[in-house]
Design a protein around this nucleic acid. Sequence first.
DNA 1: TTTCATGTAACTTTATATGTTACATGATTG
DNA 2: CAATCATGTAACATATAAAGTTACATGAAA
Lengths: 152, 152
Amino acid sequence: MKHDTRFSAMLHLLLHMADRNQPITSDELARYMAGNAAAVRRTMAGLRAAGIVRSGKGHGGGWTLGRPLQAISLADVYAALGTPDLFAIGIRNPAPSCLVERAVNASMQETLGEAERLVQARLQSITLASIAAELRARMAKLPLNPKEPHDA
Amino acid sequence: MKHDTRFSAMLHLLLHMADRNQPITSDELARYMAGNAAAVRRTMAGLRAAGIVRSGKGHGGGWTLGRPLQAISLADVYAALGTPDLFAIGIRNPAPSCLVERAVNASMQETLGEAERLVQARLQSITLASIAAELRARMAKLPLNPKEPHDA
DNA sequence: TTTCATGTAACTTTATATGTTACATGATTG
DNA sequence: CAATCATGTAACATATAAAGTTACATGAAA
């Protein structure tokens, strides 16, 4: 089954936007994710509606963050995308009259529901700032590069 | 995103097979799940390879359970289907050179991985016998009622 | 007024489960 | 043995949704 990669892509782009004081155009964002500018605008539209990003037209236009990284949880981003289906598997008939099938549905829904709540709780607890912090920690461990002094 | 309903469908069919001493034909199973006999055979093929079901040709042929309900965990069934993708969402680029994207991937994989382990543990702990037991408990609560037909 | 960039609609492409058709294989029964 | 039944499997069609693509209108900046 084909994956929905919008969530992953948006997180990536948001972090790049945070790294920049200037607005970034859809074209440049599309290059970051090896994708298409129209698709960027289409997907980002939900984030704009949620106040996560802002967009500007014309010269000097493009996309900027709508609020600081620590005020954007992964759950915010996920919800802004319309809360896409989390699972690739699902029940075949949601309202069967067959009691056997109802029992199967109940069992699956219990398990998947619990997993979904776990994911939701995790997404709420992680902000873009957390990921940025982890990113900085990783970069500190890399071999010397011109920008950073050596560390432990 | 379209759901993969094979897991749900197979659980349903397996429980019906347990209710019957006789083999059930693909045609009848297809009616249970409002589906197609060839699709039943195709999907059930994996379960047969795993020893969960047996099939017989010709007169009196059809599908029977390969072992008792308590010896079939939901994880067995899931694995027999080829361990289909659990999540509808995924990372856009599994091996990016961009460090930002790597950090995003790591974060998502951590969360989804944990949820997947939870689901896997649950599926291992639930057997078809557990579901059948819950089903019997539900039926005991119903008003007395002669047999009901199945729906489509 | 020219240029740049978004906003959005419409269409195409792609991937995958599922539906469908067809026929070979093999088992049972008369 | 021959007819019938049911699976085994291949091949192709369909449906759906993300993602790619194209086109053009809108609006802002220089």
